[in-house]
Each structure stands twice: as structure tokens, then as C-alpha cells.
Design a protein around this nucleic acid. Sequence first.
DNA 1: TAAAAGATCCGCT
DNA 2: GCGGATCTTTTAA
Length: 192
Amino acid sequence: MMIFDELDVKDVDTMAQRLLGCELRRTLQDGYIIGGAIVEVEAYDQTDAASHSFRGITKRTKIMFGPSGYSYVYFTYGMHYCMNIVVGPEGYGAAVLIRALQLTEGVEFARENRPPKLADEQLANGPAKLCQALLINKELNGHDLRKPPLELIGASEVSAGLIVNTTRIGISQEKDRLRRFYIKGNSYVSKL
DNA sequence: TAAAAGATCCGCT
DNA sequence: GCGGATCTTTTAA
């Protein structure tokens, strides 16, 4: 059973938790690879006022309404990219924001893309930080995550007891909804 | 056409 | 802890 066969469920919260522990792997032009485990995520869907898909399909959000298993990369604050994995059936605007990675492969290459003198934990402990570390930009918006240069690789399910469920970060609407999930005690998470 | 807000990060105090 | 950087997308007029 591939992880991609599981993505079509409408329950984004369940899918967000399912994506914890899965791997994200970036293949660079010269063949170098940067990869790591997903340790922090947030759920967004069209019923949620905090979601880009809440107001329907636009040029930017159409990816969220497309088929699951694709990347939704958007630009924000004039200088940052954030990356999501589109989930849910086609026509349902939903995605899971990837907020932090525990890098396991190509750490030295990721480091070159980030400010100097950072601890390993700080290379990808934030949605825009991990995009910097893996060189993810708008070129990868709408990319099929089943293949390089950016792949999602399934892993066994993380048990509920090891997952913390809390409020999302950096939003102004629906602040109180518990749609952020991270692996308990993991030092690579952006904010405990 | 204009204006405001934004799923953030970093450096300085 | 605070503010600046910096520009796309969306919405309203």
C-alpha cells in the first residue's frame, strides 16, 4: 500500500497525522540528495477560514483543488516559500503544510543553503526554512510527488500516543482549532 | 488601479 | 521580545 493511495480521504486532520514520519526527498541537478522525515504539519481545507482554499478556486489555489499527491508551493511575506502536500479527492480544496523536517540525508548540502553556524535542528525547523534548505521554490508548485526532483516516501504510521495536537502558528483566523500536529519530544519541531 | 494582508525569518536589544 | 525586509495574491472600488 503506497502512501499515495491513502491521500484521497477528506479528513485532512487524519491525513496530516499520517504524513508524520514520512520522508521528503529532494534531488538536485548534480544528483545530490537532501532528505528527511516530516516531524511537524498543519491541516488546511476549504471549510477552514484560515485556508487559502476557503474562498474557492483562484489562480493560486487551484492546485489545492486538484488531485492529491502534488505539491502546493506558495510565496509569502515578500521573501519566503512554504510547501504543502495536496490531499483529499479532486475538487476538494485541501492540503497539509509541512512545517519541519528532521534531516537525515545530505545534511551538509542543506547547510549550504542556510545561514552559517546553525545547529542541525535549525536547518529545517520552519515551513520557509525547510524550503530554503531543500531549494524548494515556485518551480516546484504543482509537482507530482511520486517522482524526482521532489518525492514523498511513505513510512509506517506514527502511533497516536506519540503525536501532539495543538493550535496552528502564524494565522489570524480559526486560531483555536487544533490542526497542528507534531512528533512528541522531537527537537527538530519549530515550536513546542 | 490601488491597497492591505500575509500558513515567516533573522538580527539586534 | 521586537521590528524590518520585501512582493505576490486577492479583493474592493
